[in-house]
Design a protein around this nucleic acid. Structure first.
Lengths: 190, 190
DNA sequence: CTTGTTTATGCAACTCGTTGCATAGAAGGA
DNA sequence: TCCTTCTATGCAACGAGTTGCATAAACAAG
């Protein structure tokens, strides 16, 4: 049930509306947690009725009004309590690995394009992370003396970068294996 | 909905009961997909009524009878169809990263023990994977001429190994960051 | 002989996540 | 003028995943 807490952290870093949160979940928070706008609105409603967050109606020109949420004291306490609880290391859900093992019962060569597509996506994501890192942390426009929040955001981003680099290298390993199998199969069937 | 397909792959690699599948999901398949026995029994029931898998009652001595499932032709066809569909790269769910960013609004030092605990767990898991790799693929008792299925299982296992190594290195980065922040905080508060 | 462990299967209730759809104001282009 | 896009919020239904509990046969330990 960490979506609650992910939203609380995001609102502590910067108050905002459900819509703004949804966009953050496509970017920075989305590096390690995904959520759709429906999920977010539902959780916001629940947390508001529980008194964890406050709402403020913000009239806007040139666009619809929005509800800006910010964390209230009980929400902060709930987050602190969660931070002190131990959690289990994440459970993995890797569809592509299922496909790779499944390819043994089908045509391994047919997977090559799919794996190449994933390789491109992860390469793009890595470039995006690295651009964000230069912009916010290591580039010339980055703040000179980072505070604790920035240090922690940076170490999480470094995790995302490490993950993408590892994944890209592994996908290249997968591709080499699939191509070797495809070649061997071609030889045998002739 | 890839649990169906993960089960089909596992049953193709080796037919078995719901209980046996649940144990595989704690081991090899569990490297990239998790499932509880309730989930597994429920899906097995559905796939059986859809004609994707066949059941065989197997009487056993010294333990309760079991139902051994194996993949039927329609199940194999369903798996093949899924293999040819493109899938989106996995969505990440990393509670620990939420905690790390949340620590900016609490005490970063309080997270150190939690991160150390995760570090130990991942170190154990890596050792377990490496033992499995030696046993099944690179050790002296491993088969000399691996078939396609074994090659593909090995490349997936190499992915698990790469993931654990990357995670362990990142957790060390996180620990160094937390300790630096804790020391700076201690200095400032004096 | 009772208690605990392993194998083996399952129901019920609940929460979480996904998908499809609906509404609505404002801006910009065809 | 109509169509699309962007901002902004939300409902309803469904499917996936989790948690707690229940049953039962066999064996091992006390």
């Amino acid at each position: 049930m960490a979506l609650d807490h992910a939203i609380l952290v995001s609102l502590l870093e910067q108050p905002g509306s459900g819509y703004e949160l949804a966009r953050r979940f496509e970017r920075s928070i989305g590096y390690f947690w995904t959520a759709t706008h429906q999920q977010i609105y539902r959780v916001l409603k629940r947390m508001e009725s529980d008194g964890w967050i406050d709402v403020r109606e913000v009239p806007q020109q040139a666009r619809p009004d929005k509800k800006e949420y910010s964390v209230a004291a009980p929400g902060r306490a709930a987050l602190a309590a969660w931070l002190h609880e131990p959690i289990e290391p994440e459970s993995v859900r890797h569809d592509l690995a299922v496909k790779i093992r499944g390819a043994a019962f089908d045509d391994p060569a047919a997977l090559i394009h799919e794996v190449e597509r994933h390789h491109r996506k992860h390469t793009d994501r890595l470039a995006h992370y690295l651009a964000g890192e230069r912009r916010d942390f290591t580039g010339p426009d980055a703040p000179g003396e980072p505070d604790a929040g920035q240090e922690l955001q940076h170490v999480v981003l470094r995790g995302g970068i490490a993950y993408e680099r590892m994944t890209i290298a592994w996908l290249e390993d997968v591709l080499a294996t699939l191509r070797r199998l495809a070649a061997a199969h071609g030889t045998r069937s002739r």
